[in-house]
Nucleic acid binder design. Structure first.
Ligand code: ZN
Ligand code: ZN
Ligand code: ZN
Ligand code: ZN
Lengths: 147, 147
DNA sequence: TTTCAAATGAAAATTGTTTCTATTTATCTC
DNA sequence: GAGATAAATAGAAACAATTTTCATTTGAAA
């Protein structure tokens, strides 16, 4: 009986090592985006000898495999988020608490059209991210740390 | 008689130094995004003692003043672009030649609505960027270097 | 021209991220 | 279950883009 994460790793031809699984668990447990160091800090108690390079490598592998997504951040550091939603969609990022929520809306069609007709180019990818304050953070104003 | 760039700098309470003006000229001449080092390389012939930190500092100041915009790049380095279009809009980035073109379309209203009703949060900003191949690069296929 | 905050150059520091290499481990096969 | 093998990993070191520091210069206002 394989766990969900073991199956995911297998399907990507990645070995299901305890550390990879633990990383996915950490990401899955929190609905916020995390930096490699965040994940490393959360796991180094459990794995005495977990190296930061391992965390970086695994996150990048999982990102390339499409299991996790990156967050665009003003500080230009790496942040990752594990989203359970399989469909194409985009993300709302809370600038205060790092919570990530799905935004169903995507103007892909209109963008394609604007590029084809106006620019006469070809769309390869698009980035859409909304930065703001989530419902919870809106309520506890004053505690807000917008970086 | 002040030049356009002198007026812009003045309005931002930035001194109009020869180097700042030259940086704006470089950005204005090319309709592509440039890195701090790109700009430094283009100017260090003219200014024997131009330092890279000065370029970084000035670009950041111009960005904060809203004169130039940043480009989101897979390599996560800094790239800037001087856009003449004053209205709110977004950018199409050619992955091959760095050309930047304006995309009129913006789904701001729909995004606002999705966040207000579904997420019940507050939108502070949004990022929309389309990556692709421009018309010129589409024609000369084979020369394409998608990084 | 005098004044002074802002801008700058040069060197050094910072720091997030990546590379390198020897060792360990997951998984495949028998 | 016991090798065989390529993938994964730790630890140290390297890297490289960006930022800081500080002494000096310069733009612009009076
Ligand atoms: Zn929040
Ligand atoms: Zn999502
Ligand atoms: Zn192009
Ligand atoms: Zn534009």
């Amino acid at each position: 009986m394989k766990t969900k994460f073991e199956r995911i790793l297998r399907s990507l031809n990645l070995k299901s090592t305890p550390k990879r699984i633990a990383m996915l668990e950490v990401l899955d447990d929190e609905q916020v985006y995390l930096s490699p160091e965040d994940i490393w800090l959360r796991l180094k108690k459990r794995f005495r000898t977990l190296g930061l390079p391992t965390v970086y490598r695994n996150l990048e592998g999982l990102f390339e495999g499409g299991v996790i997504s990156r967050v665009i951040h003003p500080d230009r550091k790496l942040y990752y988020y594990l989203c359970r939603n399989e469909e194409h969609h985009h993300h709302f990022i809370c600038m205060s608490c790092r919570r990530v929520e799905d935004v169903r809306f995507c103007a892909e069609r209109e963008l394609q059209e604007a590029v084809r007709s106006g620019i006469r180019g070809k769309v390869l990818s698009h980035i859409l991210q909304i930065n703001g304050l989530c419902h919870a953070c809106l309520k506890k104003e004053g505690t807000v740390h917008v970086s």
